[in-house]
């Protein structure tokens, strides 16, 4: 089977770090800024960044609907921090007009862990990631207020949900791409491989 091609939504945010992490997890990684680029990837990462900015640019450049269509169609997708917000069906405290792609039946609270002075690192045990807990880097991070029946909670910190999976959609409040530990990305690359397998048979 050929190597999966995974895009990183490159409208704004820490795109480079995700590209490096995906490549380290044996995927072909490329930035995605246009609908035609989105059509060519097997899976997509929505990076950390400013969720209001990413949302606005996605609408402005005609990416929001194609993104929703691909996620509805089952394309594997992973969002970290701002990316988690983009994958939430509902934001508790959206800026006016802030849209999301959706895909995970959850309600997120933006900047729930506080402003930058409260940003922190802590080890987080993530279901599905073997070995030591991952180093969670939380930057003005959101948390998940509640999840629906179809969403599986993968990790909590301080009593709050910080990692969730629903089908082919994965989301973390924290930033594995900043740590040099590529196990969360490897988990996602495995999801993309599993998704591609039936098609290539």
């Amino acid at each position: 089977m050929s190597t999966p091609v995974i895009g990183v939504l490159a409208l704004q945010g820490d795109v480079r770090e995700h590209l490096i992490a995906l490549a380290a997890a044996d995927a072909v990684a490329r930035p995605v800024r246009r609908p035609e680029e989105l059509a060519e990837v097997d899976g997509l990462v929505i990076p950390g960044g400013e969720s209001t900015t990413i949302s606005k640019l996605a609408v402005l450049f005609g990416l929001m609907e194609p993104l929703r269509a691909r996620v509805r169609g089952g394309m594997p997708v992973y969002g970290s921090c701002a990316g988690m917000i983009m994958l939430a069906d509902k934001i508790l405290d959206p800026r006016s007009g802030q849209e999301t792609v959706g895909g995970i039946d959850m309600i997120v609270r933006r900047n729930a862990f506080g402003r930058q002075n409260e940003s922190f690192e802590a080890s987080v045990a993530v279901r599905g990631v073997e070995g030591e807990p991952v180093e969670g880097v939380f930057i003005r991070a959101p948390w998940v207020e509640s999840v629906g029946a179809r969403a599986e909670v993968l990790a909590e910190h301080g009593g709050h949900i910080v990692a969730v999976r629903q089908g082919n959609a994965l989301a973390t409040s924290f930033h594995p791409e900043l740590t040099g530990d590529h196990r969360v990305h490897a988990l996602f690359v495995d999801m993309v491989r599993a998704y591609r397998t039936p098609e290539s048979l």
Partner: peptide, 13 residues
Amino acid sequence: RVKRGMAEQLKGG
């Protein structure tokens, strides 16, 4: 990592 990582989130902006 938290301080530098914050700036990483601003990239492209």
